[in-house]
Amino acid sequence: MTELLLVFAVGALGGNLVFSGGLGLRYFLPSERTPGAVFAQACLLGTLIALAALFSAGLDIYAPAQWKAAYYRTAVLLCGSFLIYKAGGHFSPLRRFDAGPALLFAAALVTGTGEMPFPEKVFYGIGTGAGAAIAWILSAGLAERLDFNRAPKPLKSAPIFFIAVGLLTLAFHYFAGLSKMCF
């Protein structure tokens, strides 16, 4: 059980796709920043990512042996991620978030490629989703703070947001050691 929790922590913190890969970043508009709305969107995004990762892990188990060498793997994972994202978009205004399918696709690729057994892949997938949800909640808080603080004119909005996310990434970088403990 400890190993599974460690794998979950690696997915959520050590290999956080948002902070270590820059995928799935989003600037929350002032109208979207109510705590309930942010939390609901983050939970939905996390669930969708976990589903995409589970889809990929399941395919690796149940698909034929030549699957790993086949070129159609990218196409199937891409198609699956898109379908999962579109289905999830009906429950929440995630449609404004253009890069969503790319994030799901990345999670599916990462989960499907590792040489882990199935239960660890499941925990890794859920951890990846949880990591993205944490990153969205932090980004929304960051955007809220930045809008109410004074910044030099050229640094306002996008530049200061990326600089602040850079500082958060530096903090998250210290969790990268978890991957070395686990793999």
Partner: peptide, 22 residues
């Protein structure tokens, strides 16, 4: 190179670009 440093560099690059836009 730390990813955080890349984010910081991108932030300053966007600031330069914003100055150019202004």
């Amino acid at each position: 190179v730390n990813p955080g440093a890349v984010f910081l560099g991108a932030g300053f690059f966007l600031a330069c670009l914003k100055y150019c836009l202004q």
